[in-house]
């Protein structure tokens, strides 16, 4: 088991995975885009503007999931002190920040034709905005603090504090009166979204997850090389 966790083995598998994702990515992207832009029907109320959902919702899910993983891995780092964990969280953070910003921007674009405004300080949007700030804080510690141990500690604390914001984002639509509708897709219980819209949504989510995996693997590989480069200098 520990042999699998060895950086050399991880490096070998990263190379293979990057090649595999590259080989299937564009075909899957074309299929997902066809469903999102051509085959899925317009909404009876929102018309074709509902198609923005196919980039907005997966972006928000990825933003939230990335931060949750960073926070959970940061807790694990505090307990087990495994250096590899910090490489993983550092590689996830830029992806999470980009998708959180995309969720905010595409949400703003969707808000104009739907609500008649580009921006409102409602609970869901504000909590997503705070999530972006936590991401910026996390990334900045690694950028501006040269002492790696200190940067790791501070960024872990930021991630753990930021974890409080995740359930606030999730349940903000239930706890407060917001412009956002309650969740249409539930992991437990019946979803209220029709399959003709659920299929393109899940396809787009899958494609964007593959994209995230690709970026994560490249960033992780860069981090491994950075460490090896440092070790080489010590020789």
């Amino acid at each position: 088991m520990l042999k699998i966790l060895n950086l050399s083995n991880i490096f070998y598998w990263i190379e293979k995975l990057i090649r595999f994702i590259n080989s299937i990515f564009f075909i899957l992207l074309l299929v997902a885009l066809s469903f999102a832009l051509i085959f899925s029907p317009p909404d009876y109320l929102q018309g074709d503007s509902v198609r923005i959902m196919y980039v907005h919702v997966p972006s928000a899910w990825i933003g939230l999931a990335s931060f949750s993983s960073i926070a959970i891995l940061s807790i694990a780092h505090f307990i087990f002190k495994i250096k590899n964990i910090k490489l993983i969280t550092k590689s996830i953070a830029p992806i999470g920040l980009m998708f959180t910003c995309l969720a905010l921007v595409t949400g703003s674009i969707w808000g104009q034709p739907t609500w008649g405004t580009w921006w409102a300080w409602d609970a869901r949007i504000t909590s997503m905005f705070i999530l972006a700030l936590f991401y910026i804080g996390f990334i900045s510690t690694h950028k501006f603090i040269s002492d790696e141990n200190k940067a790791n500690k501070i960024s872990s604390i930021i991630a753990i504090i930021g974890l409080i914001n995740v359930p606030i984002i999730k349940y903000s639509v239930d706890w407060w009166n917001t412009l956002h509708q309650p969740a249409s897709i539930k992991l437990t219980g019946e979803s209220s979204i029709h399959s003709s819209m659920l299929t393109p949504l899940l396809l787009m989510f899958f494609v964007l997850i593959l994209y995230c995996a690709l970026i994560f693997l490249m960033k992780y590989k860069t981090e491994i090389i950075r460490i090896k480069k440092k070790n080489l200098k010590r020789l």
């Binding site: 198609r51 980039v55 907005h56 595409t106 969707w110």
Partner: peptide, 9 residues
Amino acid sequence: FVWGSFAIT
């Protein structure tokens, strides 16, 4: 709005 969102993404 739709093309703008997809393009930005």
